[in-house]
Simulated assay, not measured.
Amino acid sequence: MSNIRITKQFSFETGHALYGYDGKCKNVHGHSYKLSVTVIGTPIADRNNVKFGMVIDFSDLKKIVKEEIVDVFDHATVFNQTTPHVELANELKERGHHVILVDYQPTSENMVTDFAGKIKKRLPEDIQLFSLRLQETETSFAEWFASDN
């Protein structure tokens, strides 16, 4: 049987700031992110399986991505914990804001890499993460491909 790729798309709102950056993105700002998750596998061939013909049930993939990414990052502000932004992050947390501290500069490139690791850990053994596309603006995105890593 053939390997098939399937893709599910997600949207979430997240703020961030790039510490030390020499442009406007050094300021706290937000994006309406669009995340496309593509997995690859062989469709289930067992006619007695309720998921016969599926690589993975879209609802199962949705559960993984929602729990690992969307529900965590939606309406949060992301800061690099290894910079002085941690002080701003702590102040916002004290005021009840949803803040995520990461050990990397929260660029689309680093976020998509982080997301790949989180999703890969949750996929069934026979399903591989093929690619991710994290769209930050209408014209800007970062992509992660398993074949490149």
Rank of each mutant, 00 (worst) to 15 (best):
M1G: 07
M1D: 12
S2V: 05
I4L: 12
R5D: 15
I6A: 15
T7A: 14
K8G: 01
K8L: 05
Q9C: 13
Q9F: 01
E13T: 00
T14C: 15
T14S: 14
G15Q: 03
A17Y: 10
L18D: 03
Y19S: 12
Y19T: 03
G20I: 02
D22E: 12
G23Q: 04
G23S: 07
G23V: 00
K24T: 08
K24D: 10
C25Q: 02
C25W: 10
N27I: 10
H29P: 01
G30R: 00
G30S: 09
H31P: 01
S32C: 03
Y33L: 01
K34W: 01
L35F: 00
S36D: 12
V37D: 08
T38N: 08
V39T: 13
I40L: 04
T42V: 11
P43V: 11
I44M: 11
D46V: 11
N49K: 14
V50C: 11
K51P: 08
G53C: 06
M54Q: 14
V55M: 12
I56K: 09
D57Y: 08
D57R: 04
S59T: 12
S59F: 08
D60M: 05
I64E: 10
V65F: 02
E68F: 08
I69R: 11
I69N: 01
V70Q: 01
D71W: 05
V72P: 11
V72Q: 06
V72M: 11
H75S: 10
A76S: 15
A76W: 13
A76Y: 05
T77A: 09
V78S: 04
V78Y: 04
V78T: 07
N80Q: 02
Q81C: 14
T82N: 14
T83M: 10
P84T: 03
H85V: 05
E87Q: 09
E87P: 02
A89Q: 08
N90A: 03
N90S: 04
N90V: 03
E91R: 12
L92C: 15
L92W: 10
L92Y: 05
G96I: 01
G96K: 12
G96T: 02
H97A: 12
H98D: 14
H98W: 01
V99Q: 15
L101K: 15
L101G: 06
D103Y: 00
Y104A: 00
Q105G: 03
P106T: 02
T107M: 01
S108N: 09
S108D: 11
S108H: 09
N110V: 00
N110Q: 01
M111L: 14
V112N: 07
D114A: 01
A116E: 00
G117C: 13
K120E: 12
K120L: 11
K120V: 06
K120P: 04
R122C: 13
E125N: 13
I127Y: 10
I127V: 13
Q128A: 14
Q128P: 03
F130Y: 15
R133E: 00
L134F: 11
Q135S: 14
Q135H: 06
E136G: 10
T137H: 11
E138L: 04
S140L: 08
F145R: 07
F145P: 08
S147C: 06
D148H: 14
D148S: 13
N149H: 10
